[in-house]
Write a protein that binds this DNA or RNA. Structure first.
Lengths: 202, 202
DNA sequence: AATAAGTAAGTAGGTATTTACTTATATACT
DNA sequence: AGTATATAAGTAAATACCTACTTACTTATT
């Protein structure tokens, strides 16, 4: 089956690594499982990625890159952007899970100030929300977009018998959009806030 | 030194387990390290907790219980409650880290609908925030309170050279309180929302 | 032929869990 | 009360199994 194609096998390994590490994290992820599910050999991982940690870091970067490309920031409509982020995490939880794993297991891995963060922040800098800086706004939007994926199931069950049902999901999405709208819509009757923004559509 | 006191050693093991598992999670946590740092023997963990997973689950429950006791919900002032939650996570990140680990590694562990969740939710049910249910409100508040602990360092560095400095922390706390206030304060000029709530003090 | 891609079969060091045993404390019996 | 006995608490060491990483080799492509 396999012609010899270094790029292709490298990509196959990376794809399998994203899945494996998203499921089990760095400590729980198994090199052997990755090589098996990618149809390659353990040795290739060391040839191409240097080792387990190198592979993890590249898998994280690839997953984040894919997400950033799939859900580009929309400064004009932050509530809808949050909704898109929610949908993305819903469809493919790998990126979210990988970032959580990285935050817990390899906090140094994502500690460099990435250019993509800067770009997004400066995109939002004109949409200041009261005393929140653009970075703060990003932090909150990310947090709200993933709040329902992070919430303990036991809590969600207090609202929906099946917290994973389509109906429940739709209500979560609504809540995300509503919340971000409340945060980004300028206060009407509070002094000390410059009233420079336009009101956004629902 | 040691008279024989089952309860005391059990408590010592649990305390060490909270620390170890908060640091390294279930897969990364080491039974031997826990027994060493608690000044007991590996065997006792199996006698008292059944095994690694049983110990993890009890450590999680203990940590969550301690947090719930230390930061009781304040239905009359949700923004300040969120601030208190933020402070707690700041002072002792163990509970937050343990819940994240549990969510990733043992999602079934926190899947039972806990009574404490029900209680908190019903406490907030009178403080409905627009279309958000009480549970939704809880989900958002938890998410916002821990947003800055979860944010990648690379993003926070876009705002503060030292994202862990006291000044940065104070600004995060301000942002948490501001955000929750924006969500829980009733909208003034938007149709379709029943204007039943009282305004809360800042 | 030379080089790059791929494979199979190790190796050395860990890790959770169990087994077999020792020491302390409580209970029963005379 | 004082001794024998049962039970709970604690320990050390081994078992059985993994896991990341290497060495030595084979196969394809130019």
């Amino acid at each position: 089956m396999a012609q010899r194609d270094a790029e292709a096998t490298k990509a196959r390994i990376l794809e399998a690594a994203v899945e494996e590490f998203a499921k089990h994290g760095h400590a729980g992820g198994r090199i052997e499982r990755i090589s098996a599910s990618s149809g390659t050999n353990v040795r290739m991982i060391y040839a191409y990625f240097g080792g387990k940690s190198g592979l993890f870091d590249e898998a994280l970067a690839a997953s984040l890159g894919a997400m950033a490309a799939a859900v580009p920031p929309r400064a004009e409509d932050l509530p809808e952007w949050a909704g898109d982020l929610f949908d993305y995490h819903q469809r493919d939880p790998a990126a979210l899970r990988l970032t959580l794993w990285a935050q817990l297991e390899r906090p140094e891995a994502a500690s460099e100030p990435l250019q993509s963060y800067m770009d997004k922040a400066s995109m939002l800098s004109r949409t200041a929300a009261g005393p929140l800086t653009a970075v703060d706004l990003l932090v909150v939007i990310y947090a709200v977009a993933q709040a329902w994926q992070l919430a303990p199931l036991g809590l969600l069950k207090a609202n929906h018998a099946d917290p994973g049902s389509a109906g429940a999901m739709a209500s979560y999405r609504q809540a995300v959009i509503y919340t971000v709208r409340r945060i980004t819509t300028p206060e009407s009757a509070t002094p000390g806030i410059s009233p420079q923004e336009e009101v956004q559509a629902s």
